[in-house]
Simulated assay, not measured.
Amino acid sequence: MMNVTPTAILATTNATRKPCVDIEPSPVSDFLMAVYILAFVFGLTFNVLTLYPIYQQVKQQNVLGIFLLNLSISDLLFIFTMPLWINYYRRNHRWGLGVETCNVAGFFYYSNMYISMYLLCCISVDRCLVVCYPFRFKPHRTSRYAWVQCAVVYALVMITHIYILKNDELTNVHDNAHDSDRCYETYPMKHNVAMFNMIRVGLGFILPLLVLGVSYWKVLATVGKSPGLSASAKRKVRLLSYGVIGIFSVCFAPYHILLFVRSHVSFFNTVEVHCDFERKMHFPFSGTLALSSLNCVVDPVLYVLVSNGVRDELKFCCRSDEQKGTEDCRLTSGKKETSKESALI
């Protein structure tokens, strides 16, 4: 029989109780806080500035305007929870606001991420149908068509995340024994969570990326061969195409790549190997998550740059009362001339 000394028992107990990832105060936390502050300030400013012009496009039953309005609403819901994350990183990964508040903040964070991706998908498919099959799908491109798509996206994403919240283990994040009070930073990752994350990467990122790639590849091919479009219109279509794919590449791809790698390591390795990997990857992963928050900044900027309707409405709102009368006449008289090019963007 093996003899077990009290020292060995104590060592085993300490090893068992030692947290998988011990997050210590670090300058990286200040960097993450700075990213969220920038995202909050510029995201709130740009979305508020473009909200009314986008609403004006919705009143005109502009399909792109409806998609953009729903994208802005999703961004704003996330932006309003961002001070909670700023405070979290200011306190070196200590939440201190209770499990329910963590639930709400995480719900809007991840819901916004996937609502944004799927709405960008809807926009890309809509642009593809407008450019490649204008006569076949024009009768079906109604405001109801756009609202139904947005409602389906919101419903699917939110129902999924409500189900996740009901089955997660966020109470384990609040560990009094180790004086840690984290939010959505639970280690080690369990097998069922790792499996769900790999599925989430496939359905939430890779599938939308494929849809985007195919849609804009067809758009660019069709626009390039169209002799009836001006060079300016073609440039705007290319800008929109590259811009949306760029949002995916810069904001969403790094996070989902590291999420898949973390989940793969957790699913196919022991807890010891996984914890060692998590200690090395914790701050890079947190950085990619912070980077994903910047999509709420670039969304309104991108579409103001390329959308004639939103940009003209924004300029119109910024003019004085005397200038608005003249500008309104100019915009009205020019609508018929630019309707074909505006339909593309």
Rank of each mutant, 00 (worst) to 15 (best):
S124P: 08
D126M: 07
C128H: 05
V131L: 15
C132Q: 11
Y133M: 14
P134T: 03
F135K: 11
F135Y: 10
F137Q: 07
P139M: 02
P139Q: 00
Y145G: 12
W147A: 03
V148H: 03
V148S: 01
Q149I: 05
C150K: 00
C150L: 01
V152M: 08
V153S: 07
A155M: 13
A155H: 04
L156K: 02
V157D: 02
Y163M: 09
I164L: 07
K166Q: 13
N167T: 05
D168Q: 11
E169D: 10
L170E: 08
T171M: 11
V173C: 15
V173K: 04
H174Y: 05
D175I: 00
D175C: 00
D175K: 03
N176K: 07
N176P: 06
A177L: 11
H178C: 03
H178R: 12
S180Y: 12
D181I: 00
D181K: 09
R182V: 06
E185D: 14
T186I: 09
T186W: 15
T186V: 08
M189G: 03
H191I: 13
N197D: 06
I199D: 14
I199H: 11
V201E: 10
V201Y: 01
G202E: 00
G204P: 00
G204H: 09
I206L: 13
L209Q: 11
L209V: 08
L210K: 00
L210I: 11
V211A: 10
V211Y: 04
V214K: 12
S215A: 09
W217Y: 14
V219A: 03
V219Y: 05
V219L: 12
V219E: 04
L220H: 04
T222H: 10
G224Q: 05
G224N: 12
